[in-house]
Structure formats: structure tokens, C-alpha cells
């Protein structure tokens, strides 16, 4: 089962400069574990030490944000395309501070 994975510029140091790599897995979590075998360190940029998807990474299965598909438990099928993009975010006040203020 082959999944096409699109790699953003900032993570291409893990893929020898490749814009796209191929991996396998029934879920996103499986795929990232599989990819880390061929591209060590890649998974660590996407998943936190606690095992969740990093907050400032967007991962899509085809046209859907995986946050709407169960995050790391998102199901994958042969021929799917997974796209990884760094979130574009920032602002005058820190996110953590802002969320703390919101309670």
C-alpha cells in the first residue's frame, strides 16, 4: 500500500532534498513511523514527545486536514496523498499567552 507524501521545503533536509516520498501505513501514525525508518528524524518534527500531532504542523490526507479525520488515527488508503505544511502563524502576542488569557 503506497502513500504519496509531499514534503515542505523546511523538512527536505530529512528526505535528501526530495519534494515527495513514498510510505506505507493504515493510519497516519503508522505512515509516520514507516517514514521515519527511511528518513530518520522526520517523525520527530511532526509529533510531540507526548505523542500528539504538533500544533503548528498541518497534515492533510488528500483535501482534508487530519484534525478533522482523527488526527494521527486518520485512516489511509492505497493511492492517498498526504501533504505536510508548516502552519503560517504568529502575531504580536504569544499563542500560549493568548490562550492562557482566554482561560
Amino acid at each position: 500500500m503506497a502513500i504519496d507524501v509531499r514534503i515542505p521545503t523546511i523538512l527536505r533536509s530529512y528526505t535528501g532534498g526530495s519534494k515527495a516520498v513514498s510510505g506505507t501505513g493504515d493510519t497516519l501514525a503508522d505512515l509516520l513511523t514507516n517514514l521515519d525508518g527511511a528518513h530518520p528524524g522526520l517523525r520527530g518534527r511532526l509529533v510531540t514527545p507526548e505523542g500528539g500531532l504538533h500544533r503548528f504542523v498541518n497534515i492533510y490526507v488528500n483535501d482534508e486536514d487530519v484534525r478533522f479525520l482523527g488526527s494521527l488515527e486518520a485512516k489511509l488508503n492505497d493511492g492517498d496523498t498526504v501533504t505536510i505544511l508548516p502552519a503560517v502563524a504568529g502575531g504580536a502576542l504569544g499563542f500560549a499567552a493568548a490562550h492562557a488569557l482566554r482561560g
Binding site: 498541518n58 486536514d65 501533504t83 505544511l85 502575531g91 504580536a92
Partner: peptide
């Protein structure tokens, strides 16, 4: 011009689906 999904006076984040489309 992109949507600020946070709609905030102090932070911004591109809407993830709009970002995918534009990229």
C-alpha cells in the same frame, strides 16, 4: 490576502484548508 483563522487582535494563523489550496 488570507483569512486570519484566529480572528484576533494579537495573533494570526492561516486557515489550514485555504493554505492547502493556495500552496
Amino acid at each position: 490576502p488570507m483569512e486570519n483563522a484566529e480572528r484576533s487582535t494579537t495573533f494570526y494563523r492561516f486557515d489550514s484548508l485555504e493554505q492547502l489550496k493556495v500552496w
